[in-house]
Amino acid sequence: MVEFTLWDILRNLLLAARWTVVLSLIAFAGGGAVGLVLLVLRLTGNRVADAAIGAYVQLFQGTPLLMQLFLLYFGIALFGVETSPWMAACVALILYASAYLTEIWRGCVAAVPRGQWEASASLALGFGQQLAHVVLPQALRIAVPPTVGFLVQVVKGTALASVIGFVELTKAGGMIANVTYEPLLVYGCVALIYFALCFPISLYAGSLERKLHVGRR
């Protein structure tokens, strides 16, 4: 029987944690990009686009992320497309993050007073110019704290990718627990690593919130 030191356990967990970070970043960047496109589509005032995106948001907010992962992993395969746990996890998390982010940001844009739209329209700015130079810069200040807060949800959400066989922190923890017979120690370390990832982000969100509130009334 092989003996495992605490360092062995931690080292392997930290190596796997890289994938948690990478998956989080991909989900966040991809979700942010898709979410921004959806937001702009929604703001154009096209009723069909608005209804469709509203339904999309409800769909992803109303079903567990776990189901979304399962459905994507097995659903894509159904269409004869070769899919890996890595692909499925990325796609599922990007869609999930885009639905939440577009809704968060829609609220932030709605918080920009209507007078800002009217004043910029009166100055003959086009829709794109209004968004880029007047509305989005103001919405951004409101959006930073909830957006950073949502990043924490995404980091923790990546743990679910373990169920479709993607080896990230949680999956690695399970595998190491199985060979070391020390589940409490291993999962304790896993939890600590998640905490070490998420806590600084939460702290940062809090400090951003205070900073932005000082500047604005």
Partner: peptide, 20 residues
């Protein structure tokens, strides 16, 4: 609309300056 709005300026009750 953009051409017409270049001919008309509007001042609002609530100023509506761009705060940023």
């Amino acid at each position: 609309m953009r051409e017409l709005r270049q001919r008309v300026g509007m001042i609002f009750q609530s100023f509506n300056l761009f705060p940023h």
